[in-house]
Design a protein around this nucleic acid. Structure first.
Lengths: 235, 235
DNA sequence: CCAAAAGTGTTCAGGCTACACCCATGT
DNA sequence: ACATGGGTGTAGCCTGAACACTTTTGG
């Protein structure tokens, strides 16, 4: 905390700073929560799966850095993006001191089909239930993100960013059961959800699997409001 | 994300990483929430108030770094310490790219009387209501910490780390009103609080200001439990 | 006609709110 | 004796949980 600009050009050792993103998506067909992983091409941890991310550049903010990395590595633009936690323990990267600012992102899986970038072998969605061993401490980061998502979905309307534009109420119900791992009484869940005013019927209906379902969409004003005031899904 | 160890000794520009702490305390006499600030001795922002903190060292984790800085600059050991947010915008430090990992800390004001270190002009508690203009973007960091504290106090038993070992229930009540800025019905508050089992009577009583008050303390087991499961003070 | 999923309604218990009230003590 | 703050009790409302039930449609 001493000194002037001059001092900062000295060649004393500094940590590297990276950003990593835990991107969640929901598979519409087989209802399960998935994480976006890239297969690493080069050492360390070559051929291991890892979270998309990379080193920050000097002229960009942290959030810009994640967005850029996500675009470059996976061609994905998240609907929801929130800083999660900063992982800075010493041994986490064999190359040296690397501090990683982790982000939590939510996307509609239908919107984006991820495309692998040149420096990654592949990009793919993996069910959170059976993840492979990840590079670095990325397992811990995914765990952290999962806890946050589970908690957050209860008091903020973030869940909808995983769903398509229009959806039947049962999709929300399923989403909440998948994410939290709890059971919710369908009737009561529906009443609560409608009471929040966050979702409104579009007027259209769709027939899926032997039953016609009313379609709903998110009311943006009410969504913003619920975001500010907070929600309640302690059912 | 390419290359081996070698590459990291190259002299390309890197960001600096600092840690900063927002330390809260409650004044027992005049009930108000306070933040611990240091007066900066040197440029930039000489003579401005700032959060205690400083540059991380290569061999220490982020949390160790904050604890060290707090000890060195203010001689304080926090009872509660939690990572808050990482501030990484480009213009936040005139000296160059500095990324700051901010922490939220709670202390019992009675336990520690802060002592100014050599490189700081002074250390002092400032009421959150009337803070001076702070150095860097530290105003924003304090705001962020305040929101977090206000929210967290509702669903986690962290508030008690601001109170002395033994306390009357009215102190907890006052604490919650101060922190959240809301009014709580005393009777119901007391019932709720006791129902959690987190506080238990010590058996002793103290006479303050014309009334004898039963003293309580935190039951550690129940505290840990409440931390895990979560709390509820939506009164 | 049956199975499966959407969607609706009703009851009941218990928790929360609001408010009134008593007690002890220092001045 | 009274003002002040600690502490207790209770009536009523309201909500959430449980569960039964109807409707629609594909096979």
């Amino acid at each position: 905390m001493t000194g002037h600009k001059r001092q900062y050009t000295y060649d004393y050792p500094k940590a590297d700073v990276t950003v990593d993103a835990v991107v969640f998506g929901i598979d519409r067909e087989r209802p399960e929560l998935r994480v976006l992983l890239v297969r690493r091409a080069s050492a360390p941890y070559a051929k291991h799966y890892a979270l998309p991310g990379g080193f920050i550049r000097m002229g960009e903010s942290l959030e810009r850095a994640v967005r850029r990395e996500l675009r470059e590595e996976t061609a994905i633009t998240p609907r929801y993006l929130e800083q999660l936690y900063t992982f800075g323990d010493c041994g986490r990267d064999p190359r040296g001191r690397v501090i990683s600012v982790a982000y939590l992102a939510l996307v509609r899986m239908d919107d984006h089909h991820p495309i692998a970038a040149s420096d990654a072998l592949a990009v793919a969605w993996h069910p959170v239930g059976k993840l492979p061993k990840l590079a670095f401490d990325h397992d811990a980061i995914v765990d952290w993100a999962l806890s946050r998502l589970r908690a957050k979905v209860r008091y903020a309307p973030v869940g909808f960013d995983l769903l398509p534009e229009e959806f039947p109420l049962s999709a929300v119900h399923r989403l909440y059961e998948i994410v939290t791992g709890m059971k919710f009484d369908l009737s009561n869940f529906r009443k609560r959800l409608l009471a929040t005013g966050v979702v409104v019927p579009t007027g259209e209906t769709r027939t899926i699997d032997r039953a016609k379902a009313t379609l709903y969409r998110v009311d943006q004003a009410a969504y913003a409001d619920a975001h500010a005031r907070g929600f309640n899904f302690e059912l």
